[in-house]
């Protein structure tokens, strides 16, 4: 009995020693909101449209792949095909973040890789509408310019393609004529041999 008391008291002292060793360590708590910590590189939050270099804007082509894969049914995308353009452009992109589970499946399926995560982290709201995100908001004022430029690019590309095609056709024709001519002489030669 006496032995157990001694061992018990000793065990408490050992415990005390551990806690004492912690007294002098630096505190680990960060004092939010006065202090804000940096989110990790892979941090996931509400999705956003990210800029694609060669477009100079987002590149959502309204393919509906993300809408279809989303398990929570929280994405709504609408789009149109602007005159003179081959690809579509999104005209509406809404995410109901209150439903989103941040699973990242939509990022995986996007064919143009134009989806990414926002880096906000302390969204709070009083109503459900506060979490209805309009992802096109940040791109809207640039959209007209982007379309003009894309259209020009596409026209240029089409022109270049047409030029290349006509050149190719001309080259082909020339070649055909040449072979035809060669064929004529060949025929003659064959006849001559007989």
């Amino acid at each position: 009995m006496f032995r157990e008391t001694l061992i018990g008291a000793w065990s408490l002292l050992v415990g005390m020693k551990v806690t004492l060793s912690h007294v002098l360590r630096a505190p680990v708590t960060s004092q939010y909101p006065r202090e804000r910590i940096e989110m990790s590189k892979a941090y996931r939050n509400v999705i956003r449209l990210i800029e694609i270099d060669e477009i100079g804007s987002h590149d959502c082509i309204d393919c509906q792949a993300c809408v279809r894969v989303c398990p929570s049914d929280c994405i709504k995308v609408e789009g149109e095909r602007p005159d003179g353009m081959r690809k579509k452009r999104a005209t509406l992109f809404e995410v109901e973040f209150a439903l989103c589970s941040e699973c990242g499946l939509c990022l995986d399926v996007c064919p143009t890789d134009t989806l990414g995560y926002s880096r906000e982290y302390d969204q709070a709201g009083f109503r459900r509408d506060d979490f209805l995100y309009d992802l096109l908001d940040e791109w809207r004022d640039k959209e007209a310019d982007v379309r003009t430029r894309l259209r020009e690019d596409e026209a240029k590309k089409a022109a270049a393609k047409a030029a290349a095609a006509s050149k190719a056709a001309a080259a082909k024709k020339a070649k055909e004529e040449a072979t035809a001519a060669a064929g004529d002489t060949g025929d003659v030669a064959v006849e001559g041999e007989v």
Partner: peptide
């Protein structure tokens, strides 16, 4: 917390990871 930070740095999440994909991992 230290462990969660390590996991967070690759999965982007602290509890609900959704990190696996059929045929591998997402990142």
């Amino acid at each position: 917390e230290k462990l969660l930070d390590i996991l967070d740095s690759v999965t982007g999440s602290r509890l609900t990871y959704s990190y696996g994909r059929f045929g591998g991992v997402s990142m």
